[in-house]
Structure formats: C-alpha cells, structure tokens
Design a protein around this nucleic acid. Sequence first.
DNA 1: GGTAGACCTGGACGC
DNA 2: GCGTCCAGGTCTACC
Length: 276
Amino acid sequence: VVRSHGWAWLPPFRWNEEEGLLDYALALPSGACIAIRISEAQDGVAVSTEASPGPADLEYLSGAVVWMLDLDLDLSEFYALIRDEPRLAQMEARAQGRLLRCATLFEDAVKTILTTNTAWSGTTRMATALVERYGPPAEHAADVRAFPTPQRLAELGEADLRQAGLGYRAPYVLELARDVASGALDVEAFKDSELPTAELRKRLLAIKGVGNYAASSLLMLLGRYEHVPVDSAAKAAVSRHWHDGQPVGQAEVEAAFQRWGRWRGLAYWCWDWERT
DNA sequence: GGTAGACCTGGACGC
DNA sequence: GCGTCCAGGTCTACC
C-alpha cells in the first residue's frame, strides 16, 4: 500500500524502506497536531505516537489510518476478474490494489493539483514548501509538521503561494482552500458519498486546477476506479504496448482498459508493463 | 465540442 | 555561467 504511488515520498509522509516504517503527521479534531508511526504488526497494523490523544481524537485517528491504508476495501471481485491476466494475477498473492491516501481529501486534492504539469521533483518541492512554511508543528516532535489546514492556506495571499513555488497553480490551491475553509465546498464528504461516479467526477472537475487527469486520480483515491488517469506516461505506455509506438490519445488509453469494467483505473495502475 | 496558446518551473543542452 | 528549449495538465478564448 505504501509503495502504491508516490504519496509516501511527499511530506508529511516519510517512508523508511529498510525498517518498513511510515511516518506521518496530522491534525486531530481537538486541534492538536500529532506525529504518528505506522508499521506492520503480527495481525494487522500498528500505530504509535508520543502524544496522548483523548478518546475522541483516538477514534478519529483510528478511522483516519483505516482510510489512509484503505483497509476496508474488498478486492475479491477484482481479484476474481484478473486471475487469468498474467500482468495482473500476481496482485492477489501480494495483497496489492490499495492506494495510500492522506488523512484528508483536501490534502489529497492539493497534492494532486501539485502533480499536474510538472515533474515529480517539482511536486516534491511544492509539497515540501507548503508543509515547511504553513504546516502546523506536531506535539512531541519538534521537526515534524502536518500538511497545512485549509484555514491556514485560506489566510494567505496568492503571492505567498507563488513564492512557495506553486507558480500558476497558486490561485487554484488558494481558491480550493478558501472554498473548503468557508464551508462552501465539503470535499471530505466525497469520501463516503453515495453520488454516482459521473456526478462525483463533475464535482471534482468543478475545482479549478482539476482537469481530466486529476479528477480520475482523485476518483481512484476515493475508491472509484471507472476512469484511467490519462497523463503523458499513460499515453506513452499504451502507445508502446499496443500501438507500435504510434501516438495515442485519451480514447485509446481508456479503450485499452475497457474490459476491466468498473476496475479499469486500478487495472491500469497495477498493470505490469515489464512482464514479457 | 474541439483546438491553440498561455501558464510556471526545473532540467537538459549548446555555446 | 548564461540563454534557449522542452516537458508536464489545465484553463480560457475562440471557432
């Protein structure tokens, strides 16, 4: 789950590959900000912290970790579907298919905007700048900060965010933060929304800075896999794999994974391109 | 509905 | 060391 995509390498996540430890920091309902460490345990997942959260915070924390690791996801239908596809079949034995998420969809949405039209190094630089400049410090861990809250970012000016290296994305992130902070947009409600995927996609596309690719990525993080997040890498892979290197567009990428039905985004994401 | 051009930054490259 | 070009999605204006 941790290695399912790049999030584990973006602050406030910190991934220790050798020891299998995932560090993170998050704000709790009480307003406290704590650092946590997630690790594999004998019969599940262990979460440790130096802080002493109260019962309400503890309940929130438990739910947040289940959400972040997507522990409630039932993949049995998907695993049954891919059993005869050599490029996917290994997933079941490896228990793969879950995607690492941030504690809040706001954080996921901002980070997704930061992945657009830039190299991964740019995304890292921008996310690091936001956390270091505007993230709340964690209790009992002086050098750790959580991702900035919508309220904190909403207080800023566009120039502040441009200075943080967000470039032309600054007004998009600012508008999103202000809409969420004011209550005009409840992105966290998308997590357990019963809206059809098409409608949810419309709501995501209404966020400035979120286009086709970003909306499909966010839908995947919301457990809706009907769309393939088509970026230049997806086009290049599909071109090499099925079109003899000829240029392909969105339609060809979507068509390549059509047969996986409502799981097509996950099939794309987990497709073993190297297998011969 | 489709398309061209602008947006911002870092990295590669040539001089 | 400097200037130029390019890659990376989305938005807006225009047809």
